[in-house]
Each structure stands twice: as C-alpha cells, then as structure tokens.
C-alpha cells in the first residue's frame, strides 16, 4: 500500500481529548461530523488544512489517554491516510489498527510541516520527497498485520468467525 500526502506536525503526548474532545464524541456516531473537530484544541483550523491523503506526524506517546475509538475514526474520516509517530500509546495503537487506520512507528525528527511524504507500508519505508531522505518504519507485530490486511478487526471476525492468528 503506497500512501502520498503532506505532513502536519504535532508534538509529544498528543492525548485523545485533543484528537477528539469528549464534548463531541458522546453525542453522535456520525464520524464525518466528529472529523470536523479533529485536533481542534491544538489547532482550531486543522480540519480545513487537510488535503485527502495527508499525514499526521507526531512525537512520542501519540494517542495517550482514553480508550475512545472515536479518536482514530475521527482522524480517518478527516481523510488522514496514516499517523506517523515516534511511539504510540497502546489503546490508540490497538484502536487504529482495529479500525484500519495505519499507525506507523518511525523516527519523525526529519519531517517538517508541509513535507511531501510517500509511505510504503508493504516495503516498510517512508520517502520524504521534500528532503530527499528515506526513513525506515518499525514493523507492525504479525497479529496486527493480519488484522490490518483483513481490513480491520470487524472484517477479520466476519472472515474467520473469531480470532484467527
């Protein structure tokens, strides 16, 4: 899978309240509506700045805090194709893979806002076309590759009738 888009940079410890605030997520299951508020408390205009396929690029512990699956879903429905971070909090990581949003662990130090990126999930590498460098990706655990390849955990269950690793 080859993903292309521009980078939007965020810092360390971006928590799930910042990704999608509790004041919105309790109200609706309409993810297109929630997507409009993604990252709102960190950047009120963030949703407007996204071109389909863009990436969220962050530091360590991305998605810390609550178990809300609305966080990766809001990111996905905001047309972000993947989140790239130094590290992820475990709940966000599980939820992202379960809902089919690639969560990519890699060194994000050499990526700046606006950089044109190509993320090759099959090869496991990122090309920063603006800077002309290649960044390796930390491979996903085999279980998660299986879930992601099946199209998320719901599709995995439909296909296998239960956990099948």
């Amino acid at each position: 899978m080859l993903l292309r888009g521009k980078a939007h940079i965020f810092g360390n410890d971006v928590n799930t309240d910042y990704i999608i605030s509790g004041k919105y997520k309790f109200k609706t299951l309409d993810m297109n509506e929630l997507a409009k508020h993604v990252m709102e408390d960190l950047d009120p205009d963030f949703y407007q700045k996204i071109n389909p396929g863009d990436f969220i690029v962050a530091g360590s512990n991305f998605g810390c805090g609550s178990s809300r699956e609305q966080a990766p879903l809001a990111v996905k429905y905001a047309n972000i194709s993947a989140v790239l971070a130094q590290s992820f909090a475990r709940l966000f990581y599980r939820n992202a893979i379960n809902t089919g949003l690639p969560a990519v662990e890699c060194d994000t130090a050499n990526i700046a806002t606006g950089d044109e990126l190509e993320v090759d999930l099959t090869k496991g590498e990122i090309t920063n076309r603006t800077k002309g460098i290649i960044i390796p990706v930390k491979p996903l655990p085999p279980v998660m590759i299986k879930i992601l390849n099946d199209g998320g955990l719901a599709a995995h269950f439909r296909k296998h009738g239960g956990f099948n690793f």
Binding site: R68, E69, L91, N95, T99, L153, A154, F157
Partner: peptide
C-alpha cells in the same frame, strides 16, 4: 482497557 471494536469482538467470542 480496550476500544469499542475489541469489546465487540469480546462480546461475540
């Protein structure tokens, strides 16, 4: 803690 899809998988299995 887990997310909603994990919970659903648990309710079934």
């Amino acid at each position: 803690g887990v997310g909603s899809t994990d919970l659903a998988a648990g309710l079934i299995s």
